[in-house]
Design a protein around this nucleic acid. Structure first.
Length: 666
RNA sequence: GCUGCUGUAGCUCAGGGGUAGAGCACUCCCUUGGUAAGGGAGAGGCCGGGAGUUCAAAUCUCCCCAGCAGCACCA
């Protein structure tokens, strides 16, 4: 096939255990695997040569470090998923002629393939495609790699009507060869590597859902039809994955929010939350907690207007860069009976704030600030409105009205690093208090649409880098990484991503170093030299928004909130109505100690009541009967536990009050 | 905003051109029961909204609206 084959010198291959096998000449991975043993030959999926993954059929003609990849290796699983995507594409093209293939990558837990077809696929098609995939696995088609000339490949794919593929190959530099993989009569452009044959895929795969997706991820392009699948090395893993999805669904804040009577949403206020009394207790607890932490960290709190004249937003730059996401109303007074409300007029326009920053600068600008006043850490639990695309709305996690734990730190440039480090420490401590012990930090760099000069961005980005390093968090442990083009239009930002109880990540906290807005809105302070200087402004949030953060808390704890956040901390319920009076007394005693307690005196069996309050995720169920009433004790049953302990009422008050204490970051 | 799916009782869902169904929840009655569903009776619906086809529409068609899953968006 090529000159490698004719090379006739011995080839030494070193295996991961350090042993070396010598061959007379070039050798394929298959031969090597067979040489080691028939078991490995059967299990072999691919080979790693000097760190590079290759097909088993590729010849190795030089001395190399090699490792046979099986399904036990992470790379093996990736190859399996990649082949699952190819086999799905083959099945689709057999079943639905005229469908064009585009791209089909491996993703977390599975794969997808995007197809171009006049009529999008529906969920009903999945079973049929899956069946055909199984047949292709049965056929055990050999997967063969070929190297084609780029231009020939383009011509070929154009000829068979695969215009998207042709476009993909056109992106490959002229003169380069491309690799093509054939299985049966089907073929695809692909970098590889792939399994030796389709039979190696096994049957631990499942097609999950169909969805639309834009060609090349751009909403200006055609919408393709995407099929998502999952694939594993064996049925057991597949089942575990399905179980994991089911467990995640059980934590869904929308479901728990309804079951626990925390909030609701309805079309008349699309994207805005109706907080019910129980849900709002969580909010109030969280807000009170944050307020204490901010007070202790030297912040001052303000409250600024919901509506401001559009000209103010023009000055800040929001109107130019962000107006499509802003709600605006004409500032016009109705002229007489039946004339209001006015929707259209030539008068001034007012806009709902989508952010708090401009108003905070206006507060800062009142009076003359001295360098001695800095830093000023100005906090607001600011309620903002953003007109989000309808398709983006999601429960209480992505809404159109939300309240941020927002603050802006006005400081001198020489104070920046210290302020950022202090912020990192505060944020770390808040996350700990709220039950999250792992989070990642990313640096979002300048976006295309932005204000300010490159020099300003260089400086701002470097300050964030330096600060995170100084805070000791620019490490792998914190998933440190820099993201191109992800920054805000006025500043680069550090993003803090929480990891929840089941390993999902949520971007919540942020801090942004901004020199642009103070400039645009002309904020200044008097320096030591008596001259005017620009302050730098740090935009920062720890929770992000209350709506989203409470959603995350619900999912993280699966509704079983820690005692200090739980809407109802305890329910007291008697075994029979004989103990009603004592149950009421217990409840009153706990309430007097500052706890959120209710009684359940209904004429129901104790089993029934336990079940109901367990479902409602009440942390403590306090059962009292004649025995407890007699001895002034309480039978305590904790959520999630099947047994109970009997305690003296006095001891219970002490224990529970202690346990319900709001954390202080200590 | 785009693609697909869904919308029936407070909740979870069945039904499918000819008088609207179940379980749970709710109300009342019986039951006083020691740690995750005791029994009975009752009440509850413009079948998301609008238009069309039809003797007849919850059911078929079209248009809206909302929800869900992705995509795009998340300054």
């Amino acid at each position: 096939m090529n000159e490698l084959q004719s090379a006739k010198h011995p080839v030494n291959l070193r295996l991961p255990d350090g042993s070396v096998r010598t061959f007379d000449g070039p050798v394929t991975g298959t031969t090597l695997a067979a040489d080691i043993g028939p078991g490995l030959l059967k299990a072999a999926l691919a080979i790693k040569v000097n760190g590079e993954l290759m097909d088993l059929s590729r010849e190795i003609s030089e001395d190399s470090d090699v490792a046979i990849i099986t399904k036990r290796d992470a790379e093996g699983l990736e190859i399996i998923r990649h082949d699952a995507a190819h086999i799905m594409a083959e099945a689709v093209q057999e079943l639905f002629p005229g469908t064009q293939v585009t791209i089909g990558p491996v993703i977390e837990d599975g794969f997808f393939y995007d197809f171009a077809r006049d009529k999008p696929f529906t969920e009903d098609d999945l079973a049929v495609i899956e069946k055909r995939m199984n047949e292709i696995v049965e056929r055990d088609e050999e997967i063969i790699r070929e190297v084609w000339d780029r231009d020939e490949a383009i011509a070929y794919f154009k000829k068979i009507g695969e215009h998207y593929k042709a476009e993909l190959i056109e992106a490959i530099p002229a003169g380069e060869d491309v690799s093509i993989y054939k299985q049966g009569t089907w073929l695809d452009l692909c970098r590889g590597p792939h399994l030796p044959s389709t039979g190696k895929l096994g049957n631990a795969f499942k097609l999950m859902k169909v969805a639309g997706a834009y060609w090349r991820g751009d909403s200006k392009n055609a919408m393709l039809t995407r099929i998502y699948g999952t694939a594993w090395t064996d049925k057991k893993d597949l089942k575990a994955y399905i179980t994991r999805l089911e467990e995640a669904a059980k934590r869904d804040h929308r479901k728990l929010g309804q079951e626990m009577d925390l909030f609701h949403l309805q079309p008349e206020a699309q994207g805005s939350v109706f907080w019910h009394p129980k849900g709002y207790i969580i909010w109030r607890q969280l807000e009170a907690y944050m307020r204490r932490r901010l007070d202790a960290a030297g912040y001052v709190e303000v409250k600024t207007p919901q509506l401001m004249d559009v000209n103010q937003w023009e000055r800040s730059g929001h109107w130019g860069k962000y107006s499509e996401n802003m709600f605006a109303v004409p500032d016009e007074v109705p002229q007489g009976e039946g004339d209001g409300p006015v929707f259209k007029g030539d008068g001034a326009m007012m806009a709902m704030k989508p952010m708090n920053c401009p108003a905070h600068i206006l507060v800062f600008k009142q009076g003359i600030k001295s360098y001695r006043d800095l830093p000023i850490r100005m906090a607001e639990f600011g309620c903002c409105h953003r007109n989000e695309p309808h398709g983006a709305l999601h429960g209480i996690m992505r809404v159109r009205q939300f309240t941020q734990d927002d603050a802006h730190i006005f400081c001198r440039e020489d104070q920046l690093i210290d302020e950022i480090v202090q912020f990192c420490d505060l944020l770390d401590s808040v996350y700990q208090d709220l039950g999250f012990d792992k989070y990642e930090i990313k640096l979002a760099l300048r976006p295309e649409k932005r204000f300010g000069t490159d020099a300003e961005w260089d400086r701002a980005e470097q300050i964030l880098r330096d600060a995170v390093a100084k805070a000791g968090r620019a490490s792998e442990e914190y998933g440190w990484e820099e993201l191109e083009g992800e920054g805000a239009f006025y500043a680069p930002k550090l993003e803090f991503h929480l990891t929840d109880a089941i390993g999902r990540t949520w971007q919540v906290g942020t801090i942004q170093a901004d020199t642009v807005l103070p400039e645009r809105l002309d904020a200044s302070y008097v320096g030591e030299d008596g001259a005017k200087h620009r302050p730098v402004m740090l935009h920062r949030a720890i929770l992000g928004t209350f709506e989203r953060f409470i959603g995350i808390l619900i999912e993280h704890y699966a509704g079983k909130l820690p005692l200090w956040l739980a809407p109802t901390q305890a329910v007291v319920t008697p075994i029979t109505s004989e103990a009603d009076a004592y149950a009421t007394e217990v409840a009153e005693t706990l309430k007097a100690a500052g706890l959120r307690v209710s009684t359940d005196l209904r004429n129901e069996k104790i089993n029934y009541k336990i079940r109901e309050h367990s479902h409602a995720k009440v942390p403590l169920i306090l059962v009292v009967g004649a025995r407890e009433a007699e001895s002034r004790k309480v039978s305590v049953r904790r959520l999630g536990s099947n047994d109970q302990t009997v305690m003296d009422l006095d001891a219970l008050v002490t224990t529970v009050t202690e346990e319900a204490k709001v954390p202080t970051g200590a």
